[in-house]
Design a protein around this nucleic acid. Structure first.
Length: 379
DNA sequence: CCGGCCAGACCAGCCACATAGGCCA
DNA sequence: ATTGGCCTATGTGGCTGGTCTGGCC
């Protein structure tokens, strides 16, 4: 797909960039320190020469055009792509746009070591290595170590640590929290982006009536900057639960909002529609390059920002809730009334179906009669 | 080995959503 | 004849709760 989509000509002039050193082989990596494109052999030779050279940060060359440093890994295509090719390929159609892409982190040291994985594996895996500058910086911190570690994983973009789960199987401040926190961050008046993204994020109106599942409309604008609204956003960030089915793109996602009157934490559909409809959350560990604001924010945090976020994380941790959440109250009500056999849903008998139909037709007739009467009264 | 605990599987029906196809300007 | 927008029909898969089951301690 990738090669085809690039026209099979490998980019601008139809030829892969050649190694800047040997000038004979096609380059495979780009060394930022040397600002040079190198083939596998030259890279191994140059960067194994001494310790300093071995620390040079390198990234793989785009597999589509083979002419620019790769910036993202597309998990669906299993390919590393430069910004340009990524944009070309993944803006082609809605399906491609949903491909999971993660930013490539440069790797230093030996790229061709014994357990070396492919381009994606080697570089993608580096995010959890000590080579990661951000993580290395984390290691120097000495505040409350447990919280700090957890907060670090929470602050990171794609750390493996984020897969930590507690005994209940829920995420402990994983990427989900991270994502939502970024949303929250963006939603703060002082942090608002001026583009349409945030407007959609928090002010969207359900596209449909949703009467069936009791989705209620969003109150927009009036609560902007209002403490209560901020609180609600805050809770959203906290209570995000891990899907029951685990690490899966299609896994169901539940949300919970702190509403005291709801035993099981039935989500006010306004928040539901906010998240799941107006801006479907990109899959775990991915970045939606075309609809999301730049999320790299977290990797460029100032110490002040970082401290603030750690504090916020701790607050969230304190108030985290693990209650089961109900996204659709109507489905819950229906499920409770359905016949069961040993706990499993069973097919309704013909009699039950008939009764239901009779009831519904009667109800519709009643509603129609009331409407007509209403019109007559108005007239 | 036994008992307690817990996570996950299972089921049917509703419905949100995506897609395909038809129609019209 | 082609294109773009709109609407409708159809298909797919997520969501829901009570019970059972297998694994673990």
């Amino acid at each position: 797909m990738l090669k085809e989509s690039s026209g099979g000509d490998n980019g601008n002039n139809g030829w892969a960039r050649v190694c800047d050193t040997c000038r004979s082989a096609a380059c495979t990596v780009y060394c930022r320190a040397d600002a040079a494109y190198l083939c596998t052999g030259c890279d191994a030779r140059v960067h194994a020469a001494n310790r300093v050279a071995s620390r040079h940060e390198r990234v793989w060359v785009c597999e589509a055009c083979e002419r620019a440093p790769a910036s993202f890994i597309c998990k669906a295509d299993a390919a590393s792509l430069c910004t340009s090719c990524d944009a070309d390929i993944h803006s082609a159609n809605p399906l491609a746009r949903r491909h999971h892409r993660v930013p490539i982190h440069p790797i230093s040291g030996c790229l061709y070591g014994p357990p070396a994985a492919g381009p994606g594996g080697a570089i993608g895996g580096s995010t959890t290595d000590a080579d990661d500058g951000f993580l290395a910086q984390e290691a120097d911190e000495t505040i409350d170590e447990d919280d700090e570690d957890e907060a670090a994983s929470w602050l990171l973009l794609n750390p493996v640590k984020n897969n930590n789960q507690n005994s209940n199987g829920f995420l402990i401040g994983g990427e989900v929290d991270d994502y939502l926190d970024l949303v929250e961050y963006n939603s703060c008046p002082e942090n608002q982006f001026t583009d349409q993204y945030n407007h959609q994020q928090h002010c969207s109106v359900p596209r449909k009536n949703y009467a069936g599942d009791s989705v209620v409309p969003v109150q927009c604008g009036e609560s902007k900057g209002h403490p209560q609204q901020q609180h609600q956003n805050f809770q959203l960030g906290i209570d995000y639960e891990s899907p029951k089915t685990g690490y899966n793109y299609n896994a169901s996602i539940s949300h919970s909002v702190s509403i005291s009157s709801m035993d099981a934490g039935i989500v006010p559909e306004s928040t539901m529609s906010d998240i799941s409809i107006s801006h479907p959350r990109p899959p775990k560990g991915t970045i939606d390059l075309f609809t999301s604001p730049p999320i790299q924010v977290s990797s460029q945090l100032t110490p002040m920002d970082r401290e603030a976020r750690v504090l916020r994380y701790r607050e969230k941790k304190k108030t985290r809730k693990f209650e089961k959440t109900i996204r659709y109250a109507s489905r819950k009500a229906y499920a409770e009334t359905r016949p069961r056999i040993k706990g499993r849903f069973a097919k309704r008998s013909d009699v039950e179906v008939e009764v239901d139909q009779m009831f519904s037709t009667t109800l519709m007739a009643e509603i129609g009669k009331r409407k007509r009467n209403g019109h007559e009264e108005i007239k």
